[in-house]
Design a protein around this nucleic acid. Structure first.
Length: 528
DNA sequence: TAACGAGCGT
């Protein structure tokens, strides 16, 4: 009997396709292709299996461990566990999943039947990398020193690990000692400079690199994104030659995280153009949904949700949470609740998204209920949770409850109030006529209060027609945002109410001098 | 042409 056709060497079409899918960050496609290769009665290919194993960590979180376990069983059944490629890939996979010291990779390593030298070096590198990932620098250093053989990957791991842990000087020293470097060595160093905020030095190093790959470009782009330099990131993105999925994701996320929601959706559209057509994945959609949410663009969001089904991206908990945020912001609370209840596991982020949504729409009972529910589940609230809760109380006009909540946030949960918390408290105190207390609270803010805090207080002064405090507060607002006409109008209204027409006139003059005009629809004389 | 180097949601 003839052997079935082989999916054999690493150049067979199936194996190539599987490796391509794995490299593109499409784990489900890699697995599907592998299964298809078996169905078309190809012999299981160890190289293809290695690629599939490599892509497993990119599955949705809940699917990673089951996939690892069933592939492990599959390898055992086929007798391919001792083949160096899948063996190394499986060790590496386990070293991602488990802490390095009671590492499954260790066990696999010890059980391996007299591995090739090359194989043992790869496995050692994998273990070294997992020590560094766990942040155990001393153990990694000891292991590196004790290794009988090292290659460029061992050195790269050390350079990257040291740089990431903040030991930039040592990383540079190590880099200089390397017998040979490759593009990954340079990337590791560039990434270290970026992470420590040395942007100019990173850029200089980047320009000096003998060769650059996509990782080099993406490291720079996401570094600038984190530093908030959108323009620098965009310039690099434009200079980049062939952009892969990761590059598009980095740029979309850069825009979305820096408040440039329109630009984020713009380049998302660009990557879908027929002559570009890069298939988006989970990461793409989570940035895109976040951009929709910033714009309150429900219709595009609904289209995106549909489109995700079309390209075969399924709703994981991250995406559900992003959608919860979008739907609450667009007032679709029923839909948001459905998604929230469908979460595999709820955490502080998803609870907070839901509580903030309830706070925004005056659903006090629901907000408080969710807060109790998360406490019961022993999920600690964070600053965002309290933004939601406080705004729910504020919305309902419950001053005492808001005060108690604010106190418990700082004293019981040890959360430092942010400007947003202060703004909500000032707003409710002000609306309840406690102007003096609101002012005292503003004075207690340890850092310089921003315009939103002063603005809330000014609004309260207008509500209760307090000229003396209003003048003080308005001058702060003018100082912080001289071009914002709303503050002048609020103060003008306070003057008009008290029939201080000369003061109104003075304000008008001030506005004209600063090139401001009264926004249409707002009035300050007729209200009097 | 395994292992190192890119990363999400309030």
């Amino acid at each position: 009997m003839r052997a079935p056709p082989s999916a054999g060497g690493f150049n067979s079409p199936w194996t190539l396709a599987i490796r391509a899918a794995a490299d593109q960050g499409r784990p489900r496609r890699a697995i599907a292709l592998y299964l298809a290769s078996l169905r078309s009665s190809c012999r299981p290919c160890p190289f293809a299996l290695a690629a599939v194993l490599k892509s497993v960590p990119r599955l949705p979180e809940h699917a990673v461990l089951p996939a690892a376990a069933s592939l492990h069983a599959h390898l055992l059944r086929l007798g391919l566990l001792s083949h160096p490629y899948p063996h190394a890939a499986l060790s590496h996979l386990y070293s991602h999943l488990l802490p390095p010291h009671h590492n499954h990779a260790r066990g696999l390593l010890d059980d391996a039947p007299t591995p090739l030298n090359r194989h043992s070096l790869v496995s050692s590198n994998s273990l070294l990398a997992s020590l560094l990932r766990a942040g155990d620098i001393p153990a990694a250093r000891a292991m590196f020193e004790a290794m009988p053989a090292r290659d460029v990957v061992s050195w790269n791991s050390m350079v990257a690990g040291l740089a990431k842990a903040g030991h930039l000087d040592e990383a540079i020293e190590m880099f200089d000692q390397m017998p040979e470097t490759n593009v990954a060595s340079w990337n590791a160093l560039v990434s270290g400079f970026m992470a420590q905020g040395h942007l100019a030095q990173a850029q200089e190093l980047f320009e000096r690199m003998p060769t650059r790959n996509n990782v080099s470009w993406i490291t720079m782009i996401s570094g600038y994104a984190k530093a908030g330099d959108v323009q620098a990131a965009a310039n690099l993105f434009d200079r980049m030659g062939s952009k892969d999925l990761y590059a598009w994701n980095a740029m979309i996320s850069c825009y979305a995280q820096n408040g440039c929601a329109r630009e984020a959706l713009g380049i998302f559209n660009r990557m879908l153009k027929p002559h570009i057509w890069v298939v988006p994945n989970e990461k793409t959609f989570s940035s895109v949904i976040s951009a929709c949410s910033q714009l309150g663009d429900l219709r595009f969001g609904l289209w995106v949700e549909n489109f995700m089904g079309y390209v075969g991206v399924d709703l994981d908990d991250h995406l559900r949470t992003a959608l919860v945020d979008l739907y609450t912001k667009s007032g679709r609370m029923d839909r948001a609740f459905d998604l929230f209840r469908g979460l595999r596991s709820r955490d502080v982020v998803s609870y907070s998204a839901m509580i903030v949504g309830c706070g925004m729409h005056g659903k006090l009972n629901e907000a408080v209920g969710l807060f109790k529910e998360m406490s019961k589940a022993r999920i600690d609230p964070n600053a965002v949770t309290f933004v939601g809760l406080l705004s729910a109380y504020s919305h309902a006009g419950l001053l005492e409850e808001a005060r108690a909540c604010f106190t418990s946030m700082t004293s019981r949960y040890r959360i430092n109030p942010s400007m947003e918390h202060y703004t909500i408290m000032v707003d409710i105190l002000g609306r309840c006529g406690k102007l003096e207390e609101a002012f005292q609270l503003v004075m207690q803010i340890p850092v310089c209060p921003d315009a939103s805090v002063w603005g809330a207080l000014l609004l309260a002064c207008r509500l209760h027609n307090n000229i003396e405090l209003g003048e003080v507060v308005a001058s702060k607002c003018f100082e912080l945002e001289p071009q914002e006409s709303g503050y002048y109008i609020l103060l003008g209204n306070i003057y008009a109410q008290a029939k201080k027409w000369d003061k109104v006139k003075g304000l008008r003059k001030m506005m004209a001098e600063r090139g401001l005009s009264k926004t249409p629809g707002s009035s300050w004389v007729h209200v009097a």
